[in-house]
């Protein structure tokens, strides 16, 4: 049974890289270009993990995390936040919103897979 991972990022190259890496590792991937679209995909589909960028138009990553935690289906869904900040504020913000973990850009495909394995049940 392959797990489904939702990738939310407004950057096409990032979306491609993350999706491709996850697909190669055997995960099913759904993608969205901003928080609002991501929320819609998560509401309509069974998703085992959400990987989201922070800075996005329409609805940013932090708002998406909050919205997902309010959904009964995603109260406990693991969420990874992709951030460019290595400083603690953004991570703390993400954690406070209910994110499970984070990954600081730049990261390698192997680092991504390692964190994904770590948070997926």
């Amino acid at each position: 049974m392959s797990r489904t991972i939702l990738v939310v990022d407004d950057s096409l190259s990032m979306r491609q890289m993350v999706s491709h890496t996850l697909e190669q590792a055997g995960y099913a991937v759904k993608a969205a270009v901003n928080g609002r679209e991501g929320l819609e995909v998560a509401q309509a589909n069974a998703v085992d993990l959400v990987v989201t960028d922070v800075n996005m138009p329409e609805m940013d990553g932090i708002a998406l995390v909050r919205a997902l935690r309010a959904e009964p289906n995603h109260r406990y869904t693991p969420i990874l936040v992709l951030t460019t900040e290595s400083t603690d504020t953004k991570k703390a913000e993400g954690k406070a919103a209910g994110a499970t973990g984070w990954l600081v850009k730049p990261f390698s495909p192997d680092q991504l897979l390692k964190v994904v394995t770590k948070v997926l049940p």
Binding site: M1, N73, Y76
Partner: peptide, 8 residues
């Protein structure tokens, strides 16, 4: 059942 996880 198939999934014995926190969601269920």
């Amino acid at each position: 059942h198939d999934k014995l996880t926190i969601a269920s």
